[in-house]
Amino acid sequence: MEPTDPLWAARLAAGDDHALAEVFDHLAPTVYGAALRVLGEGAAAQDVVQDVFVELWRHPDRYDPKAGTLGTYLIVLARHRAVDLVRSELRRLARQERHYRLTPEGPGPTPSDAVTAADTADAVRAAVRLLPDDQRQVVELAYFQGLSYREVALATGIPEGTAKSRLRLALAKLESALDRQLLESP
């Protein structure tokens, strides 16, 4: 019996913690690298590595060796998780910006918060401005106005599937454009 991906999969399913440690030592640097490519340096990429290996240990049966290598599977998991983090951050920034716009008379942010928020919002806006028109439009509707895919499709007169694919493309470009400081902002 050779140490192959199917064997690792079978051992993980059998609750073999030694196999988990072996897989980590073998593949964690690649998984971390994949997360770094999306997120830049920092704690967020480490969180992704943790999430990926927790997922592998909790649901080892979701990896099908017939579908590809374990390394590829973990890299795909890492990228999905990293993109989820970026999306979540974008939504948070959009919510924050809307909040500041809609509550000018409230207690408001501290001067420091305001500067940080303005910086991050500027960064997002700058990145969004670089997008092609059709992608910029769906991002603004989805993230700054909070519309669903269906509502974006209705508002722009395009099919829902097209709205989704434009958003995916736009997010991929934003991930590259946004710098690490923005993603690591609290």
């Binding site: 964690a28 640097p29 971390y32 690298g33 480490q46 943790q50």
Partner: peptide, 14 residues
């Protein structure tokens, strides 16, 4: 792309 792991990450993940 592979990257050197930060110290303590292995223990934290395990």
């Amino acid at each position: 792309m592979t990257a050197s792991l930060p110290a303590g990450l292995r223990e934290r993940v395990m």
